[in-house]
Simulated assay, not measured.
Amino acid sequence: MSSNGGTAILGAGLFATEAHLPALVKLGPAAPPLKAVYSRSESSAQKLAAAAATALHVAPGVYHDGDTSANLDALLKRSDITSVILVLPIAHQPGVIVKALAAGKHVLSEKPVAKDVAEGAKLLATFESQYKPKDLVWRVAENFEAEPGFQAAGKAIRDGKIGKVMFFNMSVVNYIDKKSKWYNTPWRTVPDYQGGFVLDGGVHSTAALRVTLQSPLTYLSGFASLNKDYLKPHDTVNAVLKAADGSHGMFELTFAAPTQSRTGNTMTVTGNSGWLSVSHATVEDASTGSQTPVIRVTIKSITEVDGKAGVEKEEVVDEPVRGVEIELKSFFAAIGGADDGLGNPAEALKDVAIIQAALNSKGQPIDLEKLISQQ
């Protein structure tokens, strides 16, 4: 992998430190060496560099906006850096994506693809016309799409284990107070993009629906509201969705749960010969006592015997949570010419379209395909 050059992390916030850096550690030689880190502030860049030195045993270059000789432009001029991982605030990412591509770098940018459908579509068109022909790779880091648990749920449906999908439900209830580390990020506290947490976190849920259901979601009707003033502009959406295969379902998403006890994240998909559920769980190792976060897929199947419903069979699949590691591995493999399709910006745009439609529907049906195509 080192023959593809080095990589750099642009952005030194929580997710860069707590997710991307550990993922690079797990990938080991499957990832290119970390050559540099960048943040708008020198202190945060130094902090990430120190964490990288401890975890990866490297000394990445430190770049920040306070020094013109060591700013983002200077980093992008380095010929030994061929790819960048963007973990920047939502509104800032599109400009940096284009700047990095223009500098000849392969780009993995954190979800969402952009703050809205119009900007995402414009960004995708720019990439397709100007940079894809130069064999540059741009992928969107959506770890729920990459999670083996959601992939396993999708495979169970493709394999016919629950029959034809009839209806589905996605319920994601989060509790965010002012003490949350995710709330206490300046760009999240005063968001300059639609939906606030509903967009930032909601695209995880829409991506999970996308890879599980298989059939594209085509129509949405819903309502949005704000229930906790500090979570402006919206903190809750409830919507009805229809898929191309005729199935339909409910999408419940909120960050305004009154207490921690009300929280939960569960998807159920019901077919004509069974059903499955997808939830988050923790598995404890009996010998070591260590705990591993997993995505648990429970599949209930019924087969007919002599024209009558037989015994219900249960299959439980526990997949360790490792979406960030997988999306990084997929990105680096794509640079090398082995593209497995993960992180496709056009698919990530569909995730934003669902959230945007839910925020703006006010009960009126919205054609999701038209929302994207009209941009």
Rank of each mutant, 00 (worst) to 15 (best):
G363Y: 11
I355L: 07
D159P: 01
A8T: 05
F15C: 05
G341I: 04
A103E: 08
V96R: 07
M267P: 02
V283E: 04
K232R: 14
M267H: 06
V137H: 10
P94W: 13
V352R: 12
L21C: 09
N4I: 14
G363D: 11
D235N: 05
D245R: 12
G104H: 14
I162Y: 05
E42V: 04
G149W: 01
A103Q: 07
I90C: 03
G336Y: 06
A146K: 01
S373Y: 06
L124E: 04
V173N: 11
N360P: 00
G66D: 09
L217V: 15
L371D: 04
L72G: 04
T236L: 13
E369D: 15
L124T: 05
S129E: 13
L276R: 03
K181W: 03
D65P: 00
H204W: 01
V190G: 02
G271E: 13
V173H: 10
N360R: 10
G249F: 12
S301R: 06
V98A: 13
Y38H: 15
T212W: 00
I372E: 08
T254Y: 07
P293L: 05
L220S: 05
Y193R: 11
P233F: 09
T236H: 14
K181M: 07
P112S: 11
F331W: 09
A224Q: 02
R139M: 14
K164T: 14
E347A: 14
A31N: 07
D65N: 14
E18C: 00
A36Y: 10
R322C: 04
Y38W: 15
V87E: 04
N265T: 09
V113K: 06
K308G: 00
V98D: 13
I295G: 00
W138P: 01
T303K: 15
F144V: 01
S361I: 10
H92Q: 15
R322K: 15
G363M: 08
Y193C: 06
T212G: 01
K155C: 01
G307D: 11
T288K: 03
V316I: 15
V117R: 02
V62N: 03
D339A: 07
L10P: 03
T263N: 04
A286S: 13
I299A: 02
D367Q: 10
V211E: 10
A103M: 09
T263H: 04
L217K: 06
V62A: 04
V87P: 00
S261H: 07
P320N: 11
L108N: 05
F127K: 05
A358P: 04
T282E: 12
K99C: 09
D339C: 09
T218M: 07
R78W: 01
P293E: 12
S279A: 13
E119Y: 01
L349H: 09
A353H: 10
G264A: 09
L88Q: 11
K308E: 15
